[in-house]
């Protein structure tokens, strides 16, 4: 990234600005705040921002007015709305004006970062997002997805089960899949997205051929899962929630697998492995891909010699 993305937070409550600032700054974004639409317009006149996060309900100049103005005078600026209790109509209006995304208020740091990350991606040429939107799946996968959606179409509260099945089928929930579900179940895309980002079970990134789930529960913590996780991250060179470049492995951190008796525990695909040590974990992972062991290289050899 050339320069750090610059973000303006617009809200009539200082506490919202402060908390968003706190979260975003810690991730290296440049952040400024404006207390209301008027102040925002003045600021944007003076300076250019990559992204603007704005509340909808504000005294004097409200969010929709601000969005219209930005679209007119600074069309390359990305817009995300933050709002407490949106009516379907205002969201719809905002979507039609071309906002990128929607953060429900109050938001968790994770949601905010998640949305910000994708909004930044979008503003960086819009290309990445468009590719994803048009990404094609094998026809069988599409058909299965359609079948699931129509199966649940008439049932109340079916969004989560459908998302679960969709993730089983596709492996993850890219925007295109969310869009399909939104249309199929007649639920606004913003709501679909807000549910996807709320539950840790859902992922918007593709997973590797083998998904390594590392238990982050208390018993595993007490018995040293951190060392095991560290070794796996170091060897595969990815963090939690990421996938290796060759798409072989992904790492997922789970709250508790409920197999505390075997702590520390990791699960690869459907198989549970207990009483892990960094060395044992590497041995097991190398069963799935022998090249991993050589990547673990020197450190692992050294541990072999130790022989427990």
């Amino acid at each position: 990234m050339a320069a750090e993305p610059k973000i303006l937070i617009v809200d009539d409550e200082l506490v919202v600005i402060k908390s968003a600032e706190r979260v975003l700054k810690s991730e290296g974004y440049v952040v400024e705040g404006a207390l209301g639409g008027r102040e925002a317009i003045l600021k944007i006149e003076q300076d250019s921002y990559d992204l603007v996060f704005t509340d909808l309900k504000m005294p004097e100049v409200d969010g929709i007015t601000l969005i219209r103005w930005i679209k007119k005078s600074r069309p390359s600026t990305g817009i995300v709305i933050i709002t407490g209790y949106p009516s379907q109509d205002t969201i719809k209006e905002a979507l039609e004006l071309g906002i990128i995304d929607y953060v429900p208020k109050p938001f968790t740091p994770a949601v905010l970062l998640d949305v910000t990350e994708r909004a930044v991606e979008w503003t960086k040429g819009k290309k990445v997002e468009e590719e994803k939107m048009t990404e094609k799946f094998p026809p069988a996968m599409e058909a299965e997805l359609e079948r699931v959606i129509s199966e649940y179409r008439k049932k109340p509260g079916s969004l989560i089960p459908v998302l679960q099945r969709a993730q089983e089928i596709v492996g993850y929930l890219p925007p295109m899949v969310q869009k399909k579900i939104s249309k199929g179940l007649n639920i606004p895309i913003a709501e679909v997205h807000s549910v996807v980002s709320f539950y840790s079970f859902f992922t918007m990134n593709p997973r590797g051929d083998h998904n390594i789930r590392v238990c982050l529960g208390t018993a595993c913590y007490v018995r040293g899962i951190e060392g095991v996780l560290g070794k796996i991250k170091e060897t595969l060179k990815i963090d939690i929630g990421e996938t290796t470049e060759n798409r072989k492995f992904s790492i997922e951190g789970v709250r508790c697998l409920g197999a505390c008796g075997l702590a520390p525990v990791m699960v690869i695909d459907e198989e549970t492995y207990g009483a892990m040590t960094p060395r044992k974990a590497m041995e097991i992972i190398s069963h799935y891909d022998p090249s991993v062991m050589s990547a673990a290289a020197a450190g692992a050899e050294m541990m072999d010699e130790k022989g427990e």
Partner: peptide, 21 residues
């Protein structure tokens, strides 16, 4: 779908309704 707060009863019910818990 994995959210600790869903152990809270009103949140769990929201979740069955298909919403953020």
């Amino acid at each position: 779908a994995g959210a600790f707060v869903c152990g809270e009863e009103t949140a769990l019910m929201r979740s069955i309704e298909g919403k953020r818990g």
